Computed example of a mutant assay.
Amino acid sequence: MGQAMIQGMIRSGSVSIDQISATAITEETIDFVSGEIGIRISDDNKRLAADSDILFLAVKPYVYQGVIEQIKSELSEDTIIVTIAPGINLETMRKYLGKNVKVIRSMPNTPSLVGEGMSVLCPNELVTETELNAVLDLYESFGKAEVIKENLMDAVPAVSGSSPAFVYMFIEAMADTAVQQGFPRDKAYKMAAQSVSGAAKMILETGEHPGKLKDDVCTPGGVTIEGVTALEKHGLRKAVIEAMNATTERSGYLSKQ
Rank of each mutant, 00 (worst) to 15 (best):
E27A: 15
E27Y: 00
E27S: 10
E27C: 08
E28D: 12
T29A: 12
D31H: 15
F32M: 14
V33H: 08
G35N: 10
I37H: 02
I39N: 00
I41F: 00
D44L: 03
N45I: 02
N45T: 05
N45M: 09
N45C: 09
N45G: 11
R47S: 15
R47Q: 14
L48Y: 01
A49G: 11
A49D: 09
S52F: 00
S52N: 09
D53E: 12
D53C: 11
L55C: 08
F56I: 08
V59W: 02
P61Y: 01
Y64P: 13
Q65Y: 12
V67F: 02
I68G: 05
I68T: 11
E69H: 15
K72F: 00
E74M: 14
S76Y: 00
E77R: 10
E77F: 09
T79E: 08
T79Y: 03
I80N: 05
I81C: 08
T83V: 05
T83P: 01
I84L: 03
A85Y: 01
P86H: 06
G87A: 10
G87D: 00
L90Y: 04
L90F: 12
L90I: 13
L90E: 10
T92M: 15
M93C: 11
K95A: 14
Y96F: 14
G98I: 15
K102S: 14
I104Q: 03
P108F: 00
P108H: 00
P111T: 02
S112G: 15
L113T: 09
L113D: 12
G115W: 07
G117H: 07
M118L: 14
M118K: 08
V120M: 03
L121Y: 01
L121A: 07
N124T: 13
L132T: 15
A134Y: 09
V135R: 00
G143W: 06
K144E: 15
A145E: 06
A145R: 15
A145L: 09
E146Q: 05
V147A: 11
E150S: 01
L152T: 12
D154W: 06
V159K: 05
